[in-house]
Simulated assay, not measured.
Amino acid sequence: MNLQVENISIEIGKKQIVDDISLRVNSQQFVGILGPNGCGKSTLLKSIYKVLSPNKGYVKLGEMDVLKEKSKKIAKHLGVVGQFNEISFDFTVEQMVMMGRTPHKKLLDSEAKKDHEMVEQALKTVNLLAYKNRSFLTLSGGEKQRVILARVLAQEPKFLILDEPTNHLDVKYQIEIIKMVKQINIGTLAALHDLTLAGSYCDYLYLLKNGSVVTYGKPEEVLTKENIEFVFDVNCEIYQNPVTGHIGIAYL
């Protein structure tokens, strides 16, 4: 399922946060959005998954006009993993993941055999099936994020949005989450902070500064010394990782 975003602009408190951004993600493509804090990455994504209303522009997911469609219908096709997932109530891991089945159920519907099958499959995908009876609150940050990913997978989405999902995680869990999403092999749009991680796993990148797209293209086209200095105001050297062949960044 393809995502098409055209001419999205967002103004908050009379300040232009996102300025006329257009982008596209094809089916099975992993696309990253990069830029410094405050550049508009998360604000743009929130407009795509309907937490914020843009001042202009449109979003199409397949043939759906996302900004005009009902949220429940969108949730059957679009899954979102954010960066903060703290809750106050004590649910088990299985109960948390079962919440992902909500878009497919009518009010007061009980859990069916398929719901339990989808939850079990999602937990297997994130390697947490053995944790299904554990309290969500007792898990580590990386484990919690894997549960949230499993909850999204239980929705049976055709497209994923990752809203800085690894921002607060250790390096091990950052890589783990991105690898798991990559292996799912559906269209994915992700706001990321780690440039090396983005260069290693993204098929295509958009680089933002002050709410606008500075450049876009394949990682080797976007992650250049000149672009990084212009957008992030840091000096660096770019090299090719001799083991993986991916882009490496040495900050000076």
Rank of each mutant, 00 (worst) to 15 (best):
G82T: 15
G32P: 03
L107S: 11
D65Q: 13
I48G: 00
V234N: 08
L252T: 08
P36G: 01
L160S: 02
S9K: 03
V231C: 06
F232A: 02
G32D: 00
E221K: 11
V222F: 06
N241W: 12
E120Q: 14
M1C: 04
G82R: 15
T125Y: 15
T92S: 15
S42T: 04
E11P: 13
F89E: 01
V171T: 04
P242R: 09
S47E: 02
I33Q: 00
N127V: 05
E226K: 14
K72W: 15
E111S: 13
G217P: 06
K113P: 05
K113Y: 12
V152T: 12
V5W: 00
Q183A: 11
A122M: 09
G211E: 02
V243A: 06
A191K: 06
I48F: 00
A250T: 12
L129W: 15
N26P: 13
V119C: 04
L128N: 10
I74E: 10
A150K: 11
P219G: 00
G38T: 10
E176H: 13
S47M: 07
E69H: 11
Q155P: 02
A190T: 07
Y251F: 15
K144M: 10
V181R: 05
I175C: 02
E220L: 08
I238T: 04
D65Y: 13
S27K: 14
R101K: 08
E143C: 11
L223W: 03
A154M: 11
Q29D: 06
V97R: 08
K182H: 12
K41N: 00
L207H: 05
L107N: 09
N227Y: 04
G245C: 03
V93N: 05
S140H: 07
L61V: 03
V214G: 02
D109L: 10
M99T: 09
L44I: 00
I186W: 07
R24M: 12
L252Q: 10
L129T: 06
E63K: 13
T244I: 04
Y58D: 04
G245L: 03
K225D: 01
D194I: 09
L108S: 12
L153F: 13
E111L: 14
S22E: 03
L44F: 00
T224G: 03
K124C: 10
G245F: 09
V222K: 02
F136K: 08
S110C: 12
G13K: 11
Y204S: 01
M118S: 10
V81W: 09
R146E: 02
E6S: 13
K106L: 11
E143H: 12
E11Q: 15
R146I: 04
I249N: 06
I48C: 00
V93F: 12
V222T: 00
H104Q: 05
V97S: 07
S42Y: 00
V18K: 02
K144R: 14
Q83C: 06
E94K: 14
Q183C: 05
